[in-house]
Amino acid sequence: MSDVLLKVEDLHTYFYTYEGVVKAVDGVSFDIRKGEIFGLVGETGCGKSVTALSIIGLIDEPGRIVSGKIIYKGKNLLELSEEERRKIRGKEISMIFQEPMTALNPVYTIGDQIVELLLLHEEGIANIKRAPKELKEEKKKKAIEMLKLVRMPDPERTIDSYPHELSGGMRQRAMISMMLATKPSLLIADEPTTALDVTVQAQILNILLDMKEKLGISILLITHDLSVIAEVTDRVGVMYAGNIVEIADTYALFDNPRHPYTVGLLQAIPSVTEKKEELKYIRGSVPNLIYPPSGCRFHPRCDYMMPICKKEKPKLVEIEPGHYVACHLFGGE
């Protein structure tokens, strides 16, 4: 489809560790459309961060992208040279991280860090020290504009502050404004609100929505928090143990979850309105990714397990327009 920005096709990313091969992402496919916020949700260790890092190309030893395609604007990113990937990284595809407290370099000012990015991608100057003064001033003005865009209080002062002088929320705003300074097409946000207070969370999510409106960017929002998904995303993918088990419009997912795992997840959320006897939980625990269960990785914990579930891994199948499930219950062969 012409408005698909990024298409991930059968991605496999493994980590070759001393204990064995960790199959962190084992056959993941989904796409992100222009101007949409796509959520990737799952528990800790399900492979969502690895997926994000694979897209932006920051998988390090002992990890490797083993197979698959990541097609961005018609090009397979995995076939590009590192040079070419770096041109895209930070310019067209940006990423913000979970811990705003530590994601910024403590020895440089906010301004310097944003200006550095602008100099790199707009002027091709990698070393900020080499840039002429007027150019730096120019970029600094731009940076202040960006800070205003994310509604940073007192941007002229913040620009010359060090990260430790700002609160968590302000730091995350700074990160967002920095990573959007080059007007990328896709922003990957890896758990951007997990480390923040609920009120600050709301502010940041608002900013993200705001940016999507103002700049027309797509956002891949990774989180384990279903309420965030509900608030902000257009579509969502559910990951479990390195695989995508369900993709749907957000509303559809919450209204009509299909995959047993998704069902279990939603049921496990403590409800504000209803009071139950016990909180429902999914029995069992997250599998070892070095020796994952055979067939469908969820089968040991599934109430609806069938014999075929042990033997064959179910494929993602479109059971309704825009709603995909990977489960033998729904005829995935």
Binding site: I56, L58, R86, K87, I88, R89, G90, K91, S94, M95, F97, Q98, E99, T102, A103, L104, N105, P106, V107, E116, L117, L120, H121, A126, N127, I128, M175, M178, M179
Partner: peptide
């Protein structure tokens, strides 16, 4: 540390990441 990830995510060449960002700290 995270800010090294950030620096790389910005698309900075490795030399800059190592010397300007990592070594300085």
């Amino acid at each position: 540390l995270d800010y090294i990830k950030t620096a790389r995510a910005k698309g900075l060449p490795d030399k800059i990441v190592i010397y300007r960002h990592a070594l300085r700290n």
